[in-house]
Write a protein that binds this DNA or RNA. Sequence first.
DNA 1: AGTCGAGTTCTTTTT
DNA 2: GAACTCGACT
Length: 662
Amino acid sequence: MIAADPHSPLMSINFREALNEEQYAAVTAEPGPALVLAGAGSGKTRTLTYRVAYLLSQGLNPWEILLLTFTNKAAKEMLARVENLTGIPAYKFWGGTFHHIGQKILRQHGEAIGLSKAFTIIDQSDAENLLSDVIRNHNPGFLKNKDNPKAKLIANIFSYARNTLTPLSELLDERYPYFDFISDELEIFFKKYQERKAKEQVLDYDDLLEKLLKLLQQEPAIAALYQERFKHVLVDEYQDTNRLQASIVDLLGSHHRIMAVGDDAQCIYTWRGADHQNIMSFPDRHPGAIIYKIETNYRSTPNILALANDVLTFQSEESGYNKTLKATRSTGPSPYFVPILDTRQQAQFILKRISGLYQEGVALSDIAILYRAHHHSMDLQMELSRQNLSYQITSGVRFFEQAHIRDLVAQLRFLHNPNDTTAFVRFSSLLPKVGPKTAEKLLTLANKLAEENQTTVFKALDNEAVLKKVPELAKEHWTDLAYTLQDAAENLDKLSPQEIVRILIEAWYGDFLKTLFTNWSAREDDLQSLLGFAGRYQDMGELLAQLVLLNSETSDRSVDMAEDALRLTTIHQAKGLEFKVVFVIGLAEKQFPIRRAIEEGNIDEELRLFYVAVTRAQDELYLLSPKMTLHGASPELLQPSRFVTGLSPESYEVLHVNKPSW
DNA sequence: AGTCGAGTTCTTTTT
DNA sequence: GAACTCGACT
């Protein structure tokens, strides 16, 4: 018993002293359904971490607590803080994203619903490619016809239907009436897509949730196992859960010892199926639920909070739970509204202001520039590089999404799950004169030969009959590749995943890389990082799952983390973070709110996003609104964002910038 | 039939 | 920049 140990750091935590009244009430809540409405900057993470510590101090074991988060980053931070507070190492907890937990449980018990032990996970772009292929197989002309939606959009529709537990036909009727003429065909594509994944034994992101729910629903014995194990279920960012996730939570926490923590004003993922209703109807689904409101804000100056509260007042009324953030800090400078000529001057203004702040002693890492969409930061990035100011950008191509990483991961996937045709096609299509069609044909042939000769598909790859069909130009590489795969496959169970990765890097791909990319040397470094990453895992299935699920872990190639650097990030990715000084750029109609949201009448979510943006600021907040954008060759005039014009004038101060000083 | 290269268009947000 | 399209080449 952990709590009985008098030396445990748990015993020395003074909950009363460490928490305010509101937080204390939530942290020490009696077992039972609880909805914690924690406003921005109110110490939400602190509350959750202390809740975990409190439960432990009541005698619970770490593995009896399930901690669900929305992003990997949040999971990592939360567990680190729990470890810090309680001294109990993070790995002892069941904590992570829904997808992560899904993966973990399915790897244990997936066979009960017909999953292979060796299933591999495909990421979004793999899934889109797979769907394109399915569509082309069924109707080769479909994607060529300009009247038809692109595979990417179709994939989004499918995903949305699955995440919201809506039958596809219903979703199409309601949201896509203009695709009525192909709805039957889309249904067929969906069915074929599902079949194809089953055949290849691959799961997409949605499967990790869907199959988990299915497992829990269809196998009561297994469900009971987890229901009994997890004495308490804690959910972070509950406002951003979708119906599929909420069903999982309700099932895993059928004992109603669920604590859902969230802020409905910060729901910014409806496009991914996040459902406001989850948080609004929580008390109905869990009778006796107690609502805890935490509204005391420790982050921002009263000036910034006044503006934030002002933002919430023009939210349309249906958005339930009313809340007003209460300030604890003393007054600071007023938030600034900065109308500015164009995006270039916007960049120059920021740089000038930053150098001023820097001289005042503000560290670069305390300054963030937030934007709605990645490309809004282009000018700024150029200007920053020109002035040699170091910045850290959480965006763009993620480390694990780079072509060369994916090529190597595809080889690992194929080794682990030889049914994963998609993976094979990916790396073998790299060879000259080999495209998707040829790759698939060759693999089918190899599979056939392997069966006839009672050997593995890896051995069959350089069978003479296969080699005869390999295009002349690709022959040499093909033999290299086949040999590498054989070598790796033979050692798959004997060596660690890291050693397998090493074999792959040092054999075919390492050489081939040099013919593929001009900057192969930098990419070689990335592969070395991958090798290092692989060292953390003992099991190939686990490594592969993490590679796909952790794809937000960005490359640290460009910036050394310890270095003092400016932070550039989308608002979505800034959620949960705080900075002394925040610049929100591109506050113009069609940029923020973005055009699409205006056209689709989806302004509420943009507004919540704006709310998230302004509540990141601790001391200073700058709202920048360019009057013009240089989109391609033709400049476009912009109106100031309705979010700014809608604010009451006393909540900000206008800063006029006449002309740049250089 | 399938692959390759040149040219064109467009960019929301994440697991 | 990357993803996509189109036409030419094998």
